[in-house]
């Protein structure tokens, strides 16, 4: 292993990490909002919309992100919809994640015992108040393990971005290997940079999980 080579590659990997993390977080934020919307629609049994949500969730949970990205990036332009790679990455991650987040949040909503909303009602809260102050916070806290697992999963999934010509970590590694054949250095940096991105998230995630455990209600 050549230290000089590693040092000279560092700035390139840093750029790539920032790009991956940037798109990653935007995609995850989008996924969370989309997932929450879908979970609430399913939970409140909104007619018609509920059907759309079910189809969307099943479609995106049962197909790989790579295929979804190919569809967004290569297929949609053929019917006149052109999307830039960055937007494509964010959208792809958001759509995939939305389906997973919807499942996690829905099971959180379902886990709340009926006595919670009954008690809120007997205290004189309206339906909206019950939902905002009782149901939603409880559902969020009980779906934290699922959400954390999804965040790590989605950040890992960003590794396919290179296929739609985004210069992420995989792209950088592949490119440098192709040009200078310093395979070992490139692969080591690749592993290290993914660790830099994912290890803190994973550790922080388990801390948050432990922190919100006090919020388990009922039983």
């Amino acid at each position: 292993m050549d230290i000089d080579v590693i040092i000279s590659y560092l700035p390139l990997y840093k750029e790539a990490l920032l790009l991956t993390a940037g798109i990653g977080w935007q995609g995850i934020a989008l996924a969370f909002l989309l997932g929450l919307l879908c979970a609430v629609i399913t939970h409140l049994r909104v007619p018609v919309l509920r059907g759309f949500v079910a189809v969307y969730v099943e479609l995106f949970r049962n197909t790989p992100l790579l295929v979804q990205l190919f569809f967004l990036y290569f297929a949609l332009p053929k019917i006149g919809i052109h999307i830039s790679p960055t937007v494509c990455g964010t959208m792809g991650l958001g759509l995939l994640g939305g389906a997973y987040m919807a499942e996690a949040l829905r099971s959180g909503l379902e886990a709340i015992p009926a006595i919670q909303s009954e008690s809120a009602q007997s205290l004189g809260m309206t339906g909206m108040q019950t939902f905002r102050h009782i149901i939603l916070p409880e559902a969020l806290s009980s779906s934290v393990p699922g959400i954390v697992a999804n965040v790590v999963f989605l950040l890992k999934e960003t590794s396919v971005f290179s296929t739609i010509s985004l210069m992420d970590l995989m792209f950088t590694a592949k490119d440098l290997i192709g040009m200078y054949a310093k395979t070992i250095e490139c692969l080591t940096l690749l592993v290290v940079f993914y660790l830099i991105m994912l290890l803190p998230v994973s550790v922080l995630g388990s801390l948050v999980e432990r922190r919100v455990r006090h919020a388990e209600f009922g039983d």
Partner: peptide, 19 residues
Amino acid sequence: RIMPQMVLLFVVYFGTTRV
């Protein structure tokens, strides 16, 4: 859990040849 499968694929496919 932490390493993307894509990274593992690269490490095994390209890395073992080199090392």
